[in-house]
Design a protein around this nucleic acid. Structure first.
Lengths: 130, 130
DNA sequence: GCTTGACCTCAAGTTGGCTTGAAGTTGTAT
DNA sequence: ATACAACTTCAAGCCAACTTGAGGTCAAGC
């Protein structure tokens, strides 16, 4: 069992954020000792997952829907498949963007937006949009 | 030369967003016809790039710094390298997250956070953080 | 010449994700 | 028993990225 400052220290999340997450039901404290919240260690991977979801561009609400606002599994396989596909698309876009950036770094075209290689990268990145 | 509604139609950006981007200097209109803005076609790839930058989690300010708020190249190769590295890290995280999600979809562990395979995924995802 | 509709400006409002501040409550050390 | 530091609540504030709304302008068609 961890108190909030211990959890904060171990996750890098400020205590205010942890309280906020508890307020909106993304994490739960296992109980209180006096007034003070106590958290189980299992919230740590949960926080990791939340951070990853944010990196993937999901809102806290979406993340809550996926990982369960309580702690029941809440597994909607179809929804998960949709998310996985979205992440796939994003990975493709990011890969193209990264390659474009790396190319620009060594490219001597007068304007990067006019560099044919860069434009191709943009087109590739957009493939699955629309 | 495109008027704002034509640009909006071709990019999917609402006109309000295009005006906002012009306000903050992310794009420029090439002139006016009466009151109405006229845009060059070259803003289209620029808008694409802005959207990609957002997907990568950069703020509009950061994007502006990278692609130039005016239209001078503004190439800070070192800054670009840093961005490319950040995107690399993000791609790794997203890949792990996607794999984790795909695994969960077919995994029968009682609680996903306890599934050893999933935990490994989280650990991998975090490797380059800190 | 007058209406219409697509544009304009500028200020204010909205949403998400937190943070900050004031005021109160503990358990521990002196 | 008291002072202290670390917690608590709750409301309000903040920033980014837009959107909305009120009120104005202009060109084109009737």
């Amino acid at each position: 069992m961890l108190d909030i400052s211990e959890l904060s220290r171990r996750t890098g999340c400020p205590a205010s954020k942890l309280r906020y997450y508890e307020d909106i039901g993304l994490i739960r404290s296992a109980g209180r000792k006096g007034l003070k919240r106590l958290f189980e260690e299992s919230v740590i991977p949960r926080l990791t997952l939340i951070a990853l979801g944010q990196t993937a561009g999901f809102s806290l609400t979406e993340i809550g829907a996926l990982i369960g606002t309580g702690d029941r599994p809440e597994l909607d396989r179809q929804a998960l498949g949709v998310r996985a596909d979205a992440i796939d698309r994003q990975i493709r876009e990011l890969t193209a963007l990264r390659d474009g950036i790396r190319h620009i770094m060594t490219c001597s075209a007068p304007s990067h937006l006019e560099c044919p290689r860069f434009q191709r990268v943009l087109r590739v990145a957009l493939k699955r949009r629309s």
